[in-house]
Computed example of a mutant assay.
Amino acid sequence: MRVALQADERAELFANKLLKLGNGGTDTVQSPDYVSLLNFGTPAENIDILLDRIYPQIHSNYENHTWLMQRAILAPHNDSVSQINKLLAEKLPTQTHTYTAINSVVDEEQAVHCTVEFLNSIEVPGLSPHVLDLKFGMPVMLLRSIKPPELMNGTRCIIHNCNRHFVEVVIAAGIYSAQHRSIPRIPLRPSDTMFPFQFERKQFPLRPCFA
């Protein structure tokens, strides 16, 4: 999109290299398991440098919603995404509000085979975590369509206020940008899991989305 709208030569070069990498056309080094990233973006020596490059001075810039929505970090694994979101959330100079979910097995006959501790530990894509930490100014993604077309699955918002029974957010992008909405706790069921049972998690349908 950036290449098409802005004729950005650097973005076009990176996009072409990314397509080549995805198609298996990038040169390998040492063995077929390693690819060459020579002149492929700007390497960062460690994760702290990466965070500072993408979110510079986040402790003071986070209140600028436009600035916040212009950047994101893409990671290949959910564990990496969670780690990056946690590290950046710690940089926000605002209070942490922790919300704990209520988990249960849908079929009561299967409940005897699943401990509460096990249900609490389940983390699957598209589902809010059992323990959800939110802070004022944090970017979050909505995981369910609550009030179409304003609040759709995938809508990015900014946390504005954390209450016991609802979270107030500001829609951060699109035609409803800057509008305030309240998000309640709702029952969530994963659409696809590796478990031979269905379970339900009552939690706010939100995930931090720095990454």
Rank of each mutant, 00 (worst) to 15 (best):
N61I: 00
F136D: 12
P208M: 13
N120Q: 14
A11F: 03
N85G: 03
S82L: 08
Y55D: 08
Y176T: 07
T94W: 03
K17M: 13
C157I: 04
I159P: 01
Q95M: 04
V105F: 04
L92E: 07
F204C: 06
R181S: 04
I58W: 01
L151P: 11
S121P: 01
H165E: 15
Q57M: 08
S128W: 04
P148E: 14
D48V: 03
G174I: 00
E108D: 14
G41K: 10
N103G: 01
L143V: 08
K147H: 11
H160E: 15
R156E: 10
N64L: 00
F204I: 02
I102N: 07
N78V: 06
I171W: 01
F195Q: 11
N61Y: 06
A44H: 14
Y176G: 02
D27R: 12
K202D: 15
F14S: 03
V81C: 06
E63M: 05
F197G: 06
V106Q: 10
N163Y: 01
P129M: 09
Q57S: 11
M138R: 03
R185F: 10
I186F: 04
R164T: 15
V169Q: 05
L132M: 07
K17S: 08
V29A: 00
R189P: 00
A11D: 15
R164G: 03
V112L: 10
T155A: 02
H165Y: 14
K17V: 01
A89S: 15
L151G: 09
V170C: 05
L87F: 04
I102A: 06
E109T: 13
F118Y: 14
I84N: 03
A111T: 10
M152W: 09
V116H: 10
R53Q: 10
L21A: 15
S128C: 09
L92R: 07
L18M: 13
L143D: 09
H165A: 01
N61A: 04
A4H: 13
N39S: 12
C209K: 02
K91S: 03
F199S: 07
S182D: 11
S82W: 06
M141Q: 13
L188C: 12
Q179N: 14
I73P: 00
T115I: 07
D133E: 15
R144N: 11
I159K: 00
V112D: 11
R181V: 11
I175E: 14
L19N: 15
L92N: 10
K17W: 04
D8W: 03
S177Y: 00
H113I: 05
S145N: 15
D133S: 14
W67F: 04
L142C: 03
